[in-house]
């Protein structure tokens, strides 16, 4: 078993907490992991990505080769497109539909969404609204993780358990909110 994931977003949008959640769940399942992160300069509002590899066998490269990723998980729609080269032809894109506009020449959002929709294995969700409806606007990244969870070879309960551990110090309410967010994302993906 092997899943290669490109996590994409803008610095500060919380892709590292998605990575931490998958990482903890993978470790609990005794899987091998390599996760290349981006720190430093680009964290200041620049485009950021993380390569996440999990496998039942030892993993060689920290970076995913182009054309080999199973999933692009993106918290921002234009950023999902930036790494298309890395995706397998039958790989999945799971992306937020809410743009993060911090540049003046951001393309028409409709054009970006249409481009995404033109691929068959794409799930686009308005994670921000879903999270808001659940009363926890800050867990929109976890909603997207939930929507990607059917494609990640990990028991759903391990992701829940990982969220529990990560938010342990923040109290039961925040833990529950994040688990709800995870479930809502999964439900969305399964409807599709």
């Amino acid at each position: 078993m092997k899943t290669d994931i490109i996590l994409a977003g803008v610095g500060g949008q919380g892709i590292l907490s998605i990575a931490a959640t998958i990482g903890m769940a993978a470790l609990a399942n005794n899987l091998h992991i390599k996760q290349a992160e981006v720190h430093g300069m680009s964290q200041r509002g620049g485009a950021v990505q993380s390569h996440f590899r999990l496998s039942s066998d030892p993993i060689s490269s920290d970076l995913i080769p182009k054309g080999k990723a199973d999933i692009i998980l993106s918290v921002e729609p234009m950023e999902a497109l930036r790494y298309l080269d890395f995706l397998k032809s039958d790989g999945w894109i799971v992306t937020n539909s809410t743009p993060f506009v911090n540049i003046s020449n951001y393309p028409e959002i409709e054009i970006v969404l249409n481009k995404l929709k033109s691929r068959k294995n794409t799930i686009i969700l308005d994670a921000d609204s879903i999270a808001k409806e659940l009363g926890s606007p800050r867990s929109s990244n976890i909603v997207i993780l939930g929507a990607a969870s059917p494609f990640i070879d990990l028991p759903f309960e391990s992701l829940e358990a990982a969220l529990r551990k990560i938010f342990l110090r923040k109290g039961e309410k925040i833990i529950q909110a994040n688990i709800e967010a995870l479930k809502a994302g999964k439900a969305f993906a399964e409807k599709r």
């Binding site: 200041r44 509002g45 620049g46 234009m78 950023e79 911090n102 054009i111």
Partner: peptide, 9 residues
């Protein structure tokens, strides 16, 4: 054309 550079700021 669609993918714009997003430099740090």
């Amino acid at each position: 054309e669609m993918i714009k550079a997003r430099p740090p700021a």
